[in-house]
């Protein structure tokens, strides 16, 4: 029964990690940007869903949808206000752009964290799940919400796969991650591709934030941890590799769950961080990385 419990819990957590990390890795793959305000954007979506559902009495459906939308807006604001000006700046040398973007998004993330704590306290908030109640699977009580989270995450990942592989815009996205210069020679506007990838990212991060708030709760105190976990999943999987990130999300999710159940909840994150160190040492490009 414990094994089943670990299997189920780990699956839901990993699906959520995967959803959070895919957008992160996509942006890196396409535009070389490491967005360190990732956790901040997730938490903005979570807090917005909570406030709109609760304080504005809009109910959990509208609240959750509005949360995802505000997550998307936060992502686009991050792109327009922080990332794009740095990329376009003539004052910043070309080969230093990435480090400037890294610093810029890190500071932006801290600003989000402080603002959320100031206006909403650093207490975590929770969003009422779209469906309540528990199912009993093989003697293990599983909230319906946990099952739904796994289902939503995988549906969205499936949709993303279709988008990237079956649509013209998606294939342009894929091409941009392989050879951006070639793409511009074919007459594609890189900036509109960047905007598309940030839009996809915003929806994914917003959704992950809202789902996290229905499951475990989220608040300003979690922002650093959320960014760090997405970052380590993406590095573990191989920067820019979507399937690598998914694989890594499951490795990290299950490793954490196993540790929490079999060793001690307090040590939860330690083994996956050790694994990250080992992988970076032995296989710096990550599990499925190309570069």
């Amino acid at each position: 029964m414990l094994a089943l419990q670990i299997l189920i819990d780990g699956f839901a957590i990993s699906a959520l990690y995967g959803l959070g990390a895919i957008g992160f890795t996509l942006i890196f793959g396409v535009s070389g940007v490491l967005n360190l305000s990732h956790g901040g954007i997730m938490v903005i979506a979570a807090i917005a869903a909570w406030a709109i559902a609760g304080d504005l009495h809009a109910g959990t459906y509208i609240g959750s949808a509005a949360g995802v939308l505000i997550g998307l807006i936060a992502a686009l604001v991050t792109y327009g206000l922080v990332v794009r000006p740095i990329q376009r700046s003539r004052a910043i040398p070309r080969d230093e752009t990435e480090i400037f973007v890294l610093t810029g998004t890190l500071l932006w993330g801290i600003m989000i964290q402080e603002a959320v704590a100031y206006f909403f306290t650093d207490n975590p908030v929770t969003v009422v799940p779209l469906i309540s109640g528990v199912a009993t699977i093989g003697g293990v009580r599983v909230p319906y919400n946990e099952i739904m989270i796994a289902a939503i995450c995988w549906s969205v990942i499936g949709l993303l796969w279709l988008l990237v592989n079956r649509t013209r815009a998606g294939r342009a996205l894929l091409a941009a991650s392989i050879n951006p210069r070639g793409l511009t020679l074919l007459g594609f506007e890189l900036s509109s591709i960047y905007l598309l990838v940030w839009t996809i990212y915003g929806v994914l991060a917003g959704l992950a934030g809202v789902l996290l708030a229905t499951f475990l709760g989220a608040g300003s105190a979690n922002i650093g941890q959320l960014t760090a976990s997405a970052f380590s999943i993406v590095v573990l999987g191989g920067l820019g590799s979507v399937s690598g990130s998914l694989l890594a999300a499951y490795v990290v999710g299950y490793l954490e769950t196993l540790t929490a159940y079999l060793v001690a909840p307090t040590l939860r994150t330690i083994p996956s961080l050790l694994l990250l160190v080992i992988v970076v040492y032995l296989r710096p490009q990550g599990l499925l990385g190309r570069r």
Binding site: L2, Q5, D9, I13, P124, L216, G217, N222, Q225, T257, A260, Y261, P265, T266, R268
Partner: peptide, 14 residues
Amino acid sequence: RFSPDTTDFTPLFN
């Protein structure tokens, strides 16, 4: 005794 950083309490309740 659990860490105040704990986010997932499922293993504890279990």
